[in-house]
Nucleic acid binder design. Structure first.
Length: 518
RNA sequence: GCCCCGGUAGUAUAGCCCGGUCAAGUAUGUGGGCCUUUCGAGCCCAUGACCCGGGUUCAAAUCCCGGCCGGGGCACCA
């Protein structure tokens, strides 16, 4: 099989049905008519292994409940409310959608927060009217700086208990653009005695100078922007989210958000927090990945785009995520774990070919007749067919190539089997080549003398380059492959025997591959 | 400094809520064997863990307390 179709959601669901069914039930699941879940990325970068976890876990729960005959919904929401310090990347919206499709995730509804500012303004007014929020502004008798100081000591800021109409007016002034950055904020009333100072009266809206920091989607249209906790509280409610599965870094946010729900008389969704996912030796920090300054789909990166290019199958990522589950503890996985899952998927599909790295010549002397090798495309599936390689002796000699590392293990007198061809005995060895003669032909004779079996490449061959990511370096293995490799299509994954799985990325003078794993 | 969460084999996970069936299951890794014309796959065997100390109890991985260790959050990032 040279190509396989894009894995679709249904197929993935089928292969992971068991893992999805085994997910522990969500709290109070019987209380809700439609189990509603969401994935809410910030489009300031593409998805990576860390951000794929909430996407997959939330979607898996949708599938789990649908599988149970319940109604369930999955919502995609872009959280792009900070054009200043987490400026959205215009291309990231589509890139994230593509990442999700690649994972086989389908969303029932999509929202973009930068389209919803008027909704947040409306709710802000309601909360202010109910006395649940107030404005600290340059000219309100309590500047944002005063507010900050008083809150540390647990003291109320002067506006805190002013009449809602006063705060409504101040809020309107914010919207009218009367204040500059840092001059006014809308604050949610919480509990000034709360032991965690960050929970005490927190900022719901602030001014961002969008002339200076235009938003990629809405430009300079708005200057008053909601903070994360404010917009999330509102959206989760309005979108009918019943369960939120997110990383434990958000656990305090659940507490903070509870005050919005209390002020509005809304019921707060159930929140489940899982631990961090770490990969040995690989950073999952968006900031650090961006700082590398390389394309986000580079095969060295743990971005979904990078992994996709690297030849990792989406099902392997699903499998890892379902294995890790929703425990509150941190999970440290290795790339070996991911590769092991991926190997299960690609091993049956990858055709086998012979290639030698750093080729050295072997001259077989005294060959009387044509040598023929008949190689199966996949030893476990003979029905996929065979190919033949014929070697015609010239003046009683046949030349071919083997890998330098194999040659180094041989010395004069060594017997080695050339896979599917003949067994040879080394009669002379120089630095870069060897002379040999045919020792015997069949496999049994090779086994009798414990001859190693190695792959080889005839003089009629194709040059190959394999780019092997190692940490942040890419090592180029150069070599030769049997001619049949030229029939491999771009993005196909094959196995070079005794070397590893490789994915063809480019055909030019050489066939250029990326190393997937062994 | 303050607040929150957690600690089962190398790694990941099950069990912990509702204590006994757990001398702890599974996967991956590792070691060995079989098979195979790959150092891939498959099959078989082996290896290896309840953070520490107290308490409750006839009985604790499971409940309680303390310690230690790890992670996260911390105030106009999401």
């Amino acid at each position: 099989m040279s190509r396989w179709p894009e894995a679709l959601g249904e197929k993935k669901v089928e292969s992971y049905r068991k893992g999805i069914e085994d997910l522990p039930p969500l709290p109070n699941d019987s209380k809700y008519g439609v189990i509603t879940l969401r994935f809410a990325p910030n489009p300031d970068f593409v998805l990576h292994l860390g951000s794929a976890r909430p996407a997959i876990i939330n979607y898996a729960y949708k599938l789990k409940y649908e599988g149970l005959g319940r109604k369930a919904k999955f919502i995609l929401r872009f959280e792009d409310t900070d054009p200043r310090t987490k400026k959205p990347l215009p291309e990231a919206y589509d890139a994230i959608r593509e990442d999700l499709r690649w994972l086989g995730i389908k969303w029932d509804e999509e929202y973009i927060q930068s389209d919803r500012l008027n909704i947040y303004y409306g709710i802000a007014r309601e909360i202010i009217s109910k006395g649940g929020a107030y404005v600290a502004a340059r000219d309100s008798g309590c500047t944002p700086d005063d507010w900050k100081k008083s809150k540390v000591t647990g003291q109320p800021c002067r506006n805190r208990d002013a009449d809602p109409s006063v705060n409504l007016e101040l809020f309107d002034r914010m919207l009218e653009g009367r204040y500059r950055e840092g001059e006014a904020i809308l604050v949610i009333k919480t509990d000034l005695a709360h032991p965690d100072p960050s929970v005490r009266d927190w900022v719901a809206m602030r001014i961002i100078d969008t002339d200076k920091y235009p938003h990629p989607r809405v430009g300079s249209k708005y200057v008053v922007w909601p903070t994360y906790n404010f917009s999330v509280s509102i959206d989760d409610h309005l979108m009918g989210i019943t369960h939120i599965l997110r990383a434990q870094e958000h656990s305090v946010n659940t507490v903070k958000q509870s005050f919005v729900y209390a002020h509005m008389g809304w019921e707060q969704p159930e929140a489940i927090h899982f631990g961090r996912l770490r990969i040995v030796g690989i950073t999952l920090s968006k900031t650090r990945l961006k700082a590398l300054g390389i394309r986000w789909d580079d095969v060295r990166l743990p971005t979904l785009a990078g992994l996709r290019n690297r030849g990792i199958q989406p099902e392997a990522i699903w499998s890892i995520m379902l294995q890790v589950g929703v425990k509150p503890t941190d999970a440290t996985i290795t790339s070996e774990n991911l590769f092991a899952e991926n190997r299960k998927l690609i091993e049956p599909r990858a055709d086998r070919y012979m290639a030698v790295i750093d080729p050295v010549k072997v001259v077989i002397e005294g060959v009387q007749e044509r040598l023929t090798a008949r190689l199966p495309m996949h030893p476990s599936y003979p029905e996929r067919g065979y190919r033949e390689i014929q070697l015609e002796p010239v003046n009683g000699e046949v030349e071919l190539f083997i890998g330098r590392s194999d040659l180094e293990k041989l010395s004069v007198g060594s017997i080695v089997r050339l896979m599917e061809l003949v067994n040879i005995e080394i009669t002379d060895k120089r630095g870069d080549s060897a002379i040999a003669h045919i020792h015997s032909k069949d496999l049994e004779s090779a086994k009798k003398v414990n001859a190693p079996i190695i792959q080889w490449v005839p003089t009629d061959n194709v040059p190959v380059i394999i780019k092997r990511p190692e940490g942040m370096k890419i090592i180029e293995d150069r070599g030769l492959a049997e001619k049949a490799v030229s029939k491999v299509g771009v993005s196909d994954i094959v196995q070079f025997m005794r070397y590893g799985f490789v994915k063809l990325i480019e055909k030019s003078n050489e066939e250029i591959f990326v190393y997937v794993h062994n």
